[in-house]
């Protein structure tokens, strides 16, 4: 029996503002085209991994089934921050590895247009007296009063901390802007990207300063979109058509980590250690090294300093 697992079909919607489509519409669009891409149907699926963090209905996976096929198979709804969709995929991979399924559908969707700042904020205090509450006994919201927890601010500090540790002598704003310039240049090659416009260094540096050194074009825009994949075991794939076998892509590694304790990590996230560990584990599992493989982190937050989180 083969332990190999393959992607049989895959699909992604255009990312952007989709005011006329809800999360289930977007998820259904991705799922149906992924099924078509793999030349299979909902009735072939033994398991569904459904990822949605924000802006969707509760129980997204069941809502999706009710639109595209209620076959009674197990549905796992997962939430895992930036890695929610990847975790849905990994859930299906694990179900197949465990021998509980031969084929499964993984879907991830977010509906974030107009969501504003995803974290932080000064929720109006109803109380008219200074009354301590919560885990630090705060008498007022701490965001903005004791540092920031907004994503552009948090990732700005993560990048700045890296520069401090590396004794970087240049101008942080220009360094961050160069990374953004590269990313925006890449967007012109992706027809599914929300923005597909090249920006000059001057345009990026001169734009609105959200959280120094992060200007607006360095931050992820809140947008809507979905992606889906059909995953199949090697044994099941062996029974399928020549064309399906030709197009299937083997998953050489799938790993998941969480952040281990390091000094200060509960004050400012240590995004480096868990990323490095995940990369090392994935390379080991795949039996390849960074020279011949491309690793990428899946994130939705403002994470311009890609050099401090990825190891490619």
């Amino acid at each position: 029996m083969s332990d190999d697992i393959y992607i049989l079909g895959i699909s992604m919607t255009r990312f952007g503002k989709h005011p006329d489509f809800d999360a289930v519409d977007l998820g259904a669009q991705a799922a149906l085209t992924a099924l078509a891409d793999g030349d299979v149907a909902m009735s072939d699926m033994d398991v569904i991994g459904a990822g949605n963090l924000l802006g969707g209905p509760g129980g997204f996976g069941q809502m999706l089934q009710k639109q595209i096929g209620q076959t009674g198979v197990p549905v796992y709804n997962v939430q895992n921050a930036c890695a929610t969709g990847a975790t849905a995929l990994r859930t299906v991979i694990m179900a197949i590895k465990a021998g509980e399924a031969d084929m499964g559908l993984a879907v991830g969707v977010e509906k974030l247009s107009g969501a504003g700042l995803l974290l932080g904020g000064s929720k109006a205090a109803d109380r008219d007296t200074w009354t301590p509450s919560g885990r630090v006994g705060a008498i007022a919201p701490t965001d903005g009063r004791i540092g920031t927890i907004t994503m552009p601010g948090v990732f700005a500090q993560i990048g700045m901390q890296y520069l401090y540790e590396q004794s970087y002598a240049g101008v942080p704003l220009e360094l961050f802007a160069r990374i953004s310039q590269k990313n925006h240049a890449h967007s012109t090659l992706n027809p599914l990207a929300t923005y597909q416009k090249e920006l000059s260094l001057e345009q990026i540096m001169g734009d609105f300063m959200v959280a120094y050194p992060n200007t607006r074009p360095m931050c992820s825009a809140n947008c809507d979109g979905a992606a889906a994949a059909v995953v199949v075991s090697g044994d099941r794939l062996a029974t399928m058509s020549a064309e399906q076998r030709r197009r299937a892509v083997r998953i050489r590694a799938s790993v998941l980590t969480s952040d281990p304790y390091t000094e200060g990590c509960q004050v400012l996230f240590d995004v480096n250690t868990l990323t490095r560990r995940a990369a090392e584990a994935a390379y080991a599992q795949a039996g390849v090294g960074p020279r011949i493989s491309i690793s990428s982190s899946c994130t939705t937050a403002s994470r311009p300093p890609s050099w401090c989180t990825t190891t490619t």
Partner: peptide, 11 residues
């Protein structure tokens, strides 16, 4: 060891 200058925050 790190800082940011926040220009956009909640009301």
């Amino acid at each position: 060891t790190a800082f940011t200058i926040v220009g956009f925050a909640a009301p």
